[in-house]
Simulated assay, not measured.
Amino acid sequence: MNLIHNFAHILEKIKSDKPLVHHITNYVTVNDCANAVLAIGGAPVMADDPREVEEMVSIASSLVLNTGTLNNRTIESFILAGKKANTLDIPVILDPVGVGATTLRTETVKRIIDEVKLTVLRGNMSEIMNINGTKAITRGVDSTDDTMAGGREVAQSLSKRLGCVVAITGATDIVSDGTKVYYIQHGHEMLARVTGTGCMTTSLIGLCCGTKEIPIYGAMLGIVVMGAAGERAYEENVDEGVGSYRVKLMDAIGNFSVQQINEGEKIYEG
């Protein structure tokens, strides 16, 4: 079964099942994350109060944890919702935004990893290196490291250690389940000029994994949707500004099809 077939199958399940993605995410990008999930055919819910997260995740298809805007309430909710999801075999996707930038972020991510079984860990190279115990500089939510400089080894070894899929996003995206390693080169540099495209990618991964298909393919498809949409939005937005690009990006996510995927050239196993 080739990648295109796997991706098409996941998209069909999204359209038919409309997976509910429970987000405990950051308020900078929450609206765009919700709209990205809606655009591709899923259903988002944003609930972060400790008094309801266990009940909410119980009716969800997947759980997305995003550390972009931390506070004591959301930290408690991460753990409560994550543990509940584990008991119900609901996929948990972690986006460790800014880990390594502050002690609070680093300790929070460590606690989540220690107490919650992850399905997918998605971050930029600096974030993943910090989690792996490799010294890296994190500037806010931005990465200062290149995925191609040791990214394969980091993704594969961390995946084996944590027992989850590890996805490192950057100019070249690297995804590993500890055995297989895939490279994805769909995308456009304009994506880096729109806040929240990483968070939206994680939400799309959550949606794809909510179909309960093989996690590595769900992780890859979420990344591919954002990358291919970024390319399509740029084609529709040449010589226009970031604002119109952002609008066209959401349109492109909603109009995504597997015909846009360039397997073999832009997606390959390494």
Rank of each mutant, 00 (worst) to 15 (best):
L104S: 09
T201N: 11
N255Q: 15
L70F: 01
T74G: 04
N6R: 15
K266Y: 07
G133I: 11
R51D: 14
E115G: 08
H22F: 06
M1E: 11
E231L: 02
E55G: 10
I4D: 10
G254L: 05
T211S: 01
H22P: 04
E269W: 00
L88Q: 08
M250P: 06
E231P: 05
I75T: 04
S143I: 11
G163N: 01
L221V: 07
M1T: 13
A155Q: 00
Q156K: 15
T134L: 14
G140W: 04
V225S: 09
I214E: 15
A101R: 10
R152W: 09
I113N: 11
N6W: 12
E12D: 15
S61G: 15
F78W: 08
T172K: 10
E189I: 09
I253A: 10
A60Y: 05
V224Q: 02
M220F: 03
E76F: 05
K13R: 14
L104Q: 11
L191A: 06
L204E: 04
E55P: 03
I90C: 03
Y268H: 07
K212Q: 12
A233L: 05
L158H: 07
P19K: 00
H9N: 15
M148A: 08
S244N: 09
M190C: 13
A167C: 12
M1G: 12
V242G: 00
S77T: 06
T134R: 14
P19D: 04
Y245K: 01
D17I: 13
G41I: 10
E153L: 13
L88T: 02
M148I: 08
D32C: 04
A229F: 01
I40Q: 05
K84R: 12
P91L: 10
E52T: 10
V154W: 02
V181K: 00
K83R: 13
A39T: 02
E76H: 08
T197L: 03
V53W: 11
A167V: 04
T147L: 02
K180S: 13
E269K: 15
K83A: 07
V28E: 05
E213D: 13
G210S: 08
L65Q: 08
T108A: 00
V224W: 03
M46P: 08
P91I: 10
G241K: 00
E54S: 15
V116E: 07
N26H: 05
V57H: 09
S157T: 14
G196L: 06
A136T: 03
E231H: 07
K13L: 15
N86R: 00
Q260M: 15
G100W: 08
E153P: 11
V166W: 02
V242R: 12
T169W: 01
G227K: 09
D251H: 12
V165Y: 09
N132F: 14
V116F: 06
S159V: 07
I75G: 02
L207Y: 11
C208E: 07
G68R: 11
K266S: 11
E265K: 13
F78V: 00
D17T: 14
T147F: 02
S244F: 10
K13F: 09
G243K: 06
G230Q: 00
V109H: 05
L3V: 08
M250Q: 12
I10S: 03
E153R: 15
A81I: 01
V57M: 09
K212G: 03
R111T: 12
L104Y: 11
